[in-house]
Computed example of a mutant assay.
Amino acid sequence: MNKKKILITGASGFIGSTAVEKALASGYETWAGVRAGSNKAYLQDERIHFIDLSYANKDKLVKQLQSFAAQYGRFDYIVHTAGITKALHKSDFERVNYLYTKNFVDALVETRNIPDSFIFISSLSAYGAGDEKGYTPISTHQTPHPNTAYGRSKLLAENYIKSLPDFPYVILRPTGVYGPRDKDYLILMRSVKKGIAVGAGFKKQLLTFIYVEDLVKVIFECIEKGIRRKEYIVADGDYYSDDEFNKLVQQALGKKHVLRIKVPLWIVKPAAFINEKIAAIVGKPTTFNTDKYPIMKQRNWLCDVTPLQYDLGFRPDYCLKEGIEKTVQWYKENGWL
Rank of each mutant, 00 (worst) to 15 (best):
P146K: 06
S91D: 15
L188Y: 12
Y150H: 08
V263I: 15
I233F: 06
E213H: 13
L308Y: 08
P270M: 08
G27H: 09
W31I: 08
V170H: 01
E276R: 09
E325F: 04
Y135Q: 06
N289P: 05
E276F: 06
L188P: 00
N147A: 09
A19M: 07
N39P: 01
P307C: 08
D184S: 14
L265D: 09
S12P: 06
I78A: 00
A11N: 00
G128N: 02
P165S: 08
Q251C: 10
S139Q: 05
E333V: 03
E94A: 14
G37T: 07
H141N: 14
Y42K: 07
V282E: 10
Y211T: 06
M1E: 13
F288M: 11
E221C: 03
E333S: 13
K326R: 15
D106C: 11
A272V: 07
N2V: 12
G201K: 07
E244T: 10
F75R: 03
R173E: 10
K277R: 15
R260P: 08
F120P: 00
D182C: 04
V170S: 06
P174I: 02
P137V: 11
N147M: 05
A235N: 12
I138C: 11
G33H: 00
S153R: 09
T140D: 13
E221Q: 14
R229H: 03
H141G: 10
R190Q: 15
L108R: 09
Y293P: 00
D182T: 05
T148F: 05
E231Y: 10
T140L: 04
